[in-house]
């Protein structure tokens, strides 16, 4: 009897460990994810802008210039879980992504999985990018391959125990990664585009939505404002009740950085405005339509 109970416990432990191992394993995209699409670099530049890649992956001392962005990495982000350093994602074959296959890149962007199968920290907003279309991802990859190489090595993240156990991020993904849309229902084409820009490429919810103690997004308070993940202060509530701006106000802000009171954008939003000001006008209108349609 005693031995039997022990065996049961042992069996449960093995099953539990196996389940844990399974739950924390990486879950890549199907191999044929990109097989029906052909990447177009010119279209990919628009995806790159809408996704805000350069805001994090250019070097911290990089000045705005007219030329193509140099994605050398090095900006750091201090969070409750440690300090994360944006890596080099330039076309350098050693220090960047130059030697990665298209599928390796897209698995990184949409699943948060490295070419070696390790989990990325969700400071990289793959939980938003997971909602992007295969066509946009193929275009983005085609564009990234046209950008200059830079040989700056990526810096390791400074993350303490237990968050330094990357395997545990598999459990985090299982708990919190959710590729369903937040806004549901019958959307017209403009709202659908706005939802795509806000919830997928623009990854607005990553800062504007509060997080729980483990860093999972609180979808019940979608875009309702949050603590600033990168310092003190707060990230604003951009729901209609919290913001109180009209759609033309939002469009003007995304284009010029001026609020309706002619204050200007500050903090990380300055980099966001640099991107939104380069989007087509109909994309800014779509974002405004989405934000003003939020509950």
């Amino acid at each position: 009897m005693r031995l039997g109970a022990l065996k049961t416990v042992a069996a449960l432990a093995v099953t539990g460990a196996a389940a844990g191992w399974w739950l924390t394993a990486s879950d890549p995209l199907p191999d044929d994810h990109l097989s029906a699409v052909v990447g177009d670099a010119a279209a990919g530049e628009q995806v790159f802008i809408a996704a805000g890649c350069a805001s994090c992956h250019t070097a911290p001392e990089a000045e705005d210039s007219e030329g193509p962005p140099i994605l050398a990495g090095g900006q750091h982000f201090e969070t409750d879980f440690g300090t994360f350093f944006a890596p080099n994602i330039s076309t350098d074959p050693v220090h960047g992504i130059g030697a990665w296959s298209d599928m390796e890149l897209v698995n990184a962007i949409q699943r948060g999985i490295s070419p070696e199968g390790a989990h990325y920290y969700p400071a990289f907003p793959y939980t938003s990018y997971t909602r992007a279309t295969a066509q946009d991802m193929a275009d983005l990859v085609a564009y990234m391959r046209t950008l200059p190489a830079d040989a700056t090595p990526s810096q390791p993240h400074e993350v303490g125990f237990p968050f330094n156990i990357r395997r545990s991020l598999g459990g985090w993904k299982w708990l919190f990664a959710d590729d369903d849309w937040v806004m549901t229902g019958d959307l017209d084409p403009q709202l659908e585009r706005g939802r795509y820009l806000v919830e997928a490429l623009g990854h607005c919810g990553e800062c504007h939505t509060p997080r729980n103690a483990l860093g999972g997004l609180d979808r019940g308070n979608w875009l309702a404002g949050a603590e600033n993940p990168d310092g003190d202060g707060r990230i604003p509530d951009v729901t209609p009740d919290g913001l109180g701006w009209s759609a033309p106000d939002i469009v003007a802000y995304l284009e010029s950085g001026f609020t309706p009171e002619f204050d200007t954008a500050g903090g990380s939003m300055v980099a966001v405005i640099k991107n939104t000001s380069r989007l087509p006008a109909e994309d800014r209108a779509a974002i405004a339509a989405y934000l003003t349609a939020l509950p």
Binding site: N228, G242, G257, T264, G266, G267, M269, V270
Partner: peptide, 21 residues
């Protein structure tokens, strides 16, 4: 000219002003 003026304001607000509601 207004874009350049807004950009000059924002350049300081980006690095030196606390984010707030």
């Amino acid at each position: 000219a207004i874009g350049g003026l807004g950009g000059a304001c924002g350049a300081c607000h980006e690095d030196y002003r606390q984010s707030d509601d």
